[in-house]
Write a protein that binds this DNA or RNA. Structure first.
Lengths: 199, 199, 199, 199
DNA sequence: GATGAATGAGACTTCATTCAT
DNA sequence: TATGAATGAAGTCTCATTCAT
């Protein structure tokens, strides 16, 4: 157990281990036992803190969705930026978060439908909020004349998140491109496409 | 059992059922028994045709990857089209395939890492071929001057597939947009971005 | 494993062991493992034949209730007997069954409410039939003038079954009294009470 | 929590909750946690007052057996009554107690064998005392000539308790019959049987 | 080609109980 | 007097797989 783990409470250790294993192997392929082993905790402790394995999946989802919604909203609120700048900025944030919370992202995009009962509804209701935020930015850009008018902003926002989220499948920050460079490329691709951004 | 099922052999019925269940609930959440139930087949028959459950996952992956690679290559070979047209055309094919093989797609993007042993290597080696094809088209476009030069074509191809593949999470062909319209929008977004394609 | 067990099928061996253990220790105090151990069968086999532990409880109940209802009805149908004789006869049958199916009886009187869901309803609906049969005999005796008139026959039948069933708590056929003697005593007690039957 | 509960001490609240749950669901089906929940008490408190769950079962048994023995003895001591009157009187007491302590009765008749070790012996030794008391009354009645002579008094006492105790399975005081009426009917049935008591 | 009984490892979860505070 | 974190054994049940027929 490293220094960080030793100051985490039992509950946090369990969550941390679960994020790692759910992210790597998937929810159903991860046993409660393996979570406990990685967390250095007994199975009894696990069920002392969580009523069942599914509750953990719920908490992971809720944590990351709340966080990402909040991060996106922070950027949207900054009125010093024009729409294009906001796109670059939001992309920077999103890619950064995807790197920082890589496992959470993999879990979110893969296991959402495995959250049972009412908890599933709660999580699904929260999701999609960041797409609306990006759509709002696109609307502003179209109104301002920076972007081509009369485009379906929500649909474009979904395509945008496709580009961003998909990076989880291939982008490694240890490679040639820094996170910032990656974000810039995506921003360019989304704003100017293959034709490129003017200037 | 409908007419189509009745002329399928046992092996095909099993595969068909597995695609449905793996797609809906995931590989690990699908039991061999449930596959047999849906296929109307006994467990004995299952293991008569397949050495284990994982083999089915492998065959599903191999089938869809081979198919998609072939479809993409077909378009690339058509030399009557200029690069932009090829992008539109490929997008049309890809979106069409994603609709026709929705379950396969969900499986491919979620369960790839669950294929065990050598079979996993085989599948992973085949994957990525379509990205190379799209990258080739982008290269051609940059050379020809239609696209902004000096862009990382493979990386852009990956972003492109992000947009396309991600549609699985939200696009429903029963809705307002036809598959063709969807493909056009994606083509526009990829070529011209938010600024839009000039005429 | 004795000779009888060896010709029983797996399913029967499991049921036999379950009757023994449920009767001795109670349903909840009996583990599936202990049933399998006694039956000489693996846990896998258990769940091959029964979907869950509760199903066994249901089958035991259904078996014994059906049997006892049938036995009682057999006596009732014999029209050569007058009401008093029928009481003696039925008592003989009931006590005999309680001895032959001692464990079933203990289970029936103790675990009825542990049968879950619809199965519980089915069993409860069947129960009570033998009380009605005895009540019918009492009615006939009152009409004929052998028994005091205007008594609540169903209520008396319940008291009667109290006497009979309660013997499970104390009567041992290995002791001084044979089953037939026991039945006669109960018949006397029910017909003539402490005052005794006249000749 | 109602007013009564609020003046009960923690220990009493636990016992009260346990009686309710053991009576409704059975000893093994009742968890310590559920007792604590119903009692509004923590699990720590539970084990502060009781060394283990079984101890509670013992105390419930001891309480009700002591009480019922005492009640029966009170009647026996009243020498103004003749044997028949004593039977009616005792029945009244017993049925009354079965109503007032319904849950205790269900527990006593179902869980006696679940009391572990020496505690089980203690309880079993106390039980049966009330049967002896009733047998004594029967003996007196036979001697006096009120009842038919040469009957096995202890055995009849057991049949008598069968009638009484079995009422737990079906008699509801909210129904048509008052407790007193019920006791009279049982007294009649035990003394005069189906032939009825002579005036 | 197909069956279905049987297996055994391992899944999630419950539970009575202990113990430091 | 009372807490609540933690334990570990045991519980029910699932599952992929084998094998004799």
């Amino acid at each position: 157990m490293n220094q960080i783990d030793s100051i985490l409470g039992t509950r946090e250790k369990i969550l941390k281990a679960a994020v790692e294993l759910f992210g790597d192997k998937g929810y159903h392929a991860t046993s409660v036992q393996s979570i406990c082993d990685l967390a250095g905790v007994t199975k009894g402790a696990f069920f002392h803190y969580f009523p069942n394995k599914n509750q953990i999946l719920f908490e992971i989802h809720e944590f990351i969705i709340d966080r990402w919604n909040a991060e996106c909203e922070k950027v949207l609120g900054n009125d010093d930026l024009d729409p294009s700048e906001k796109i670059y900025e939001i992309t920077d944030v999103i890619i950064g978060q995807l790197i920082d919370y890589r496992q959470h992202g993999k879990i979110l995009f893969r296991e959402l439908n495995n959250i049972e009962g009412e908890m599933g509804e709660i999580v699904k209701a929260k999701r999609g909020h960041s797409e609306e935020i990006v759509a709002t930015v696109i609307e502003a850009g179209m109104k301002k004349g920076d972007f081509k008018p009369n485009q379906n902003s929500l649909l474009l926002a979904k395509l945008y998140f496709g580009m961003c989220n998909w990076t989880l499948h291939w982008y490694r920050p240890e490679g040639d491109l820094t996170t910032q460079q990656m974000a810039t490329i995506i921003g360019n691709a989304f704003i100017g496409g293959l034709m490129g951004v003017p200037r």
